[in-house]
Design a protein around this nucleic acid. Structure first.
Lengths: 193, 193
DNA sequence: CGTCTATTTGAATGTACTCAAAAGCGGTGG
DNA sequence: CCACCGCTTTTGAGTACATTCAAATAGACG
């Protein structure tokens, strides 16, 4: 366990002095989670925002009983939470599950709020983090509205090759909004050409 | 033209003293735009982030020659821009068009950056703005992945009744990701029941 | 009033889903 | 180390959802 990576992540956008760094680190909780275990379950209060130090996670929404819609994946150096429920401290709509054994640094809502008060430049950091997340989600919507399933599959593979390696086709399908059977058929078609 | 509304919008999340208020106002550019005119065209550098004082706008992406994907609507008290292109000062991917005669307050990237330096609490304001935008977009993705066209139509009407009044069915269809013909068929079906 | 665009309608087509069954693959225990 | 179990992936047939295209109707606006 080392905070090097998360500090480097922060330093992309703001610079901290020693005192601020020490304070920030003091607010972090280190957590390890095994493959297939769940960090968050639907209905639980979403207490933390999570920085992924290593491993990989997946956030998904469960609907119509047995179907999953993958909201996002997070690999090393990403942040993940159920943002809606985290900011409002409401029961989660989604599950967050480890795809691999993973190591995280967690910040509770309370600690994050304290951090904003004591080290206001973290507002800037999270402003940029949220801005990038917004842009990413908007682009995803744009693609969902304008591209075919096959185009979205190609986009996903070229945009997130490191993620694609770690996950099953079933998980890709649930991210793209298609069934695993149909993704299988798409792939078969591509192979022919 | 009065800045009352935009100041009230700001004061939802941060409070400004007189000096800060005056400085903020000095950075705003007031703009009127007529129905059907375009605030931003694909390929233009996206210079401004826009607060809608009155009226209504629509952001859309043009694809496959003649098709439109509506990214967002903005009515009074909303903020709108092509965020990706605004933050990077890159050529826009989308169009922003007035649905009605509208009045805006605009902030250039340069002025916004100055504002962040001189009145850092605006970082907090925009952090919250981006956070809400992120949550909204993520919820839209979740619905696109888990709901049928008809369910999405119902959600849209109940979530944004004020917007629904102002726009055509064609525009709603392009927001939902379906054709106007199919939306018409959905509505016909609902009317029967 | 005439023109332009939005909306509706219907037929034909294509895209994606459901269901069921077989094949493949990875992890676990004997 | 291999055999078995459970889950993923593939395959195919039948179906449902959504699109395309064309034409008729309705509305909005100068």
């Amino acid at each position: 366990m080392t905070q090097d990576l998360i500090l480097k992540n922060i330093s992309k956008h703001i610079s901290l002095n020693e005192e601020e760094t020490a304070y920030f680190i003091s607010l972090l909780k280190y957590k390890e989670i095994a493959k297939k275990d769940r960090l968050l379950k639907e209905g639980e209060i979403c207490k933390n925002i999570n920085y992924v130090h290593s491993g990989a996670l997946r956030a998904f929404y469960n609907h119509k009983g047995d179907k999953e819609a993958t909201i996002m994946f997070a690999i090393a150096d990403w942040w993940i939470t159920d943002m809606y429920c985290f900011v409002g401290q409401k029961p989660a709509m989604m599950y967050i599950e480890a795809i691999e054994d993973s190591c995280l640094f967690q910040l509770t809502k309370q600690n994050l709020d304290m951090l904003f008060v004591k080290v206001p430049k973290f507002e800037k950091f999270f402003r940029i983090l949220m801005q990038n997340a917004y842009i990413r989600e908007q682009l995803r919507i744009l693609q969902n509205l304008s591209q075919s399933a096959e185009e979205r599959y190609d986009s996903f593979l070229s945009k997130y090759p490191q993620i694609a390696q770690k996950i099953t086709q079933k998980q890709i399908a649930s991210y793209l909004g298609i069934t695993p059977e149909f993704l299988s058929a798409l792939r078969k078609n591509k192979a022919k050409v």
